[in-house]
């Protein structure tokens, strides 16, 4: 049970302000999810490089870790998280090394542009800790969490990464996630937490691994995931939105020449520039929406 936000910029001039706008949206959704918060930002990147977002215990020596990974690995630290930038060809080797030399470090996301941060605490505190307001990028999604049936931990916080440059945030409650989890585990998709939303993320990854596009994977989820949900999915080139057929959980979208924005409530959008003249609407139930940079 939660608040979700998403912002997709059409106007390049706004890109330096992405973090600042997203931070404001996230903070307003604190009432809907005071337990933890997280966000994914799609910023600068190079096609031949990979960014790994790492999470580690408080005070971890990321610099010492980076030194062990050899030359050509860039490091940028933000509180409990760090971004490693490395040549794309080295990803598998670096992941292996990390698993061996740093068992208490988790890779929470990977991709050419996606950086993913999440932590327990009030959304406003989380945003400040990771200096979200200073980040720039083309688009981002965020989440504030009111834990329902799983623990209030960083692992249980959203977004959940679903693949390279892909992540998912969720508001609602799935009613068949234990069965879906068992099926995914049999298919070799590991689920780390008790969280139903991670199952949804794993489900989409699995469908795409089976050759479905993200849009098709979202369509598939309408048949396979039961319960109440609004999903927002981030990808390298944009974001997608899907509501379950009953559509009880709230969702509001706004579009101007400068951006497309998503919020669980209008309040989250109220601070965006030019919102008073935006086209504001609610996504239809059981319909996949997608905004793509290539098409924008």
């Amino acid at each position: 049970m939660c608040g979700i936000v998403g912002l997709f910029l059409k106007d390049k001039a706004l890109e330096p302000k992405l973090g600042e706008l997203l931070s404001g949206m996230l903070e307003i959704m604190t009432d809907r999810g005071p337990d933890s918060a997280g966000f994914a930002v799609y910023g600068a990147g190079a096609p031949d490089e990979v960014k790994l977002t790492l999470r580690a215990p408080e005070g971890y020596d990321f610099a010492g870790l980076a030194a062990k990974l050899g030359d050509g690995v860039g490091l940028s630290e933000r509180a409990t998280h760090a971004i490693l930038t490395l040549p794309a060809g080295r990803e598998a080797e670096v992941r292996d090394t990390l698993a061996k030399v740093a068992p208490d470090v988790t890779v929470v996301g990977a991709g050419s542009r996606m950086e993913l941060y999440k932590e327990v605490g009030l959304p406003s505190d989380v945003a400040v800790r990771f200096k979200l307001a200073e980040m720039s990028g083309t688009h981002g999604i965020g989440h504030t969490r009111m834990a329902t049936e799983s623990a209030v931990t960083t692992n249980g916080a959203h977004p959940f990464s679903t693949g390279a440059d892909q992540c998912l945030v969720h508001n609602g409650s799935l009613s068949n996630h234990r069965t879906v989890r068992r099926n995914l585990e049999r298919a070799g998709v590991a689920i780390q937490t008790d969280n139903d939303s991670e199952v949804a993320a794993g489900y989409l990854s699995w469908r795409m691994r089976e050759g479905r596009s993200l849009g098709e994977a979202l369509e598939d989820s309408l048949g396979d995931l039961d319960g109440f949900y609004t999903f927002v999915v981030g990808t390298e080139s944009g974001f997608g939105v899907l509501r379950d057929p009953i559509a009880c959980k709230p969702a509001v979208m706004a579009e101007t020449d400068q951006y497309v924005a998503f919020g669980s409530e209008y309040r989250a959008l109220a601070g965006l520039p030019g919102i008073e003249n935006a086209k504001v609407w609610e996504p239809e139930p059981a319909k996949v929406y997608f905004w793509d940079r290539a098409a924008a």
């Binding site: 809907r32 609602g172 409650s173 109440f228 009880c248 959980k249 669980s264």
Partner: peptide, 14 residues
């Protein structure tokens, strides 16, 4: 079985 104008704790808060 459900309230007509809210579902779940985040909306119950409102």
């Amino acid at each position: 079985c459900r309230h007509p104008d809210w579902t779940g704790p985040d909306d119950l808060e409102i």
